[in-house]
Simulated assay, not measured.
Amino acid sequence: MKISTTELLNELQDRTQKHLQYAQTLLQRPENELNFRISADSWSSLECLEHLNRYGDFYIPEINQRISSSKTSSKAVFRSGILGNYFANSMMPKDKLNKMKTLRTMNPIHSQLNKNVVDEFIKQQKQLLELLERAQHIDLEKTKTGISISKLITLKLGDTFRFVIYHNARHIAQVEGILKNV
Rank of each mutant, 00 (worst) to 15 (best):
I165K: 01
R104S: 13
E33W: 08
K96F: 07
H51R: 03
T6P: 05
S148M: 13
D119H: 14
F78Q: 02
S45G: 14
F87M: 15
L83I: 15
L97S: 11
F36Y: 14
I38K: 12
Q17S: 10
H137N: 15
I153S: 11
H19L: 03
L103W: 06
Q21D: 15
Q21A: 15
S39F: 14
T5P: 06
Y86A: 15
Q124C: 05
R170T: 04
K71D: 15
L49K: 01
F121E: 01
N98P: 04
A135V: 02
T16N: 10
S4T: 09
N114C: 06
T102I: 11
N35Y: 08
A76W: 02
I153N: 08
E141D: 11
K142A: 12
L26N: 02
F163Q: 09
A23D: 01
D159A: 13
G177E: 14
K99Y: 05
T105N: 11
G158D: 05
Q21W: 12
Q124I: 02
H171S: 03
E141Y: 10
K180L: 15
S70G: 08
A88T: 10
E120H: 11
R104H: 12
L131P: 03
Q112P: 00
S69Q: 14
V77P: 00
E7V: 05
S73Q: 14
K18E: 15
S68I: 06
N85V: 00
G84E: 03
T102N: 10
H137P: 04
L128K: 06
K115Y: 06
I38F: 11
S90W: 02
A88F: 06
L52A: 01
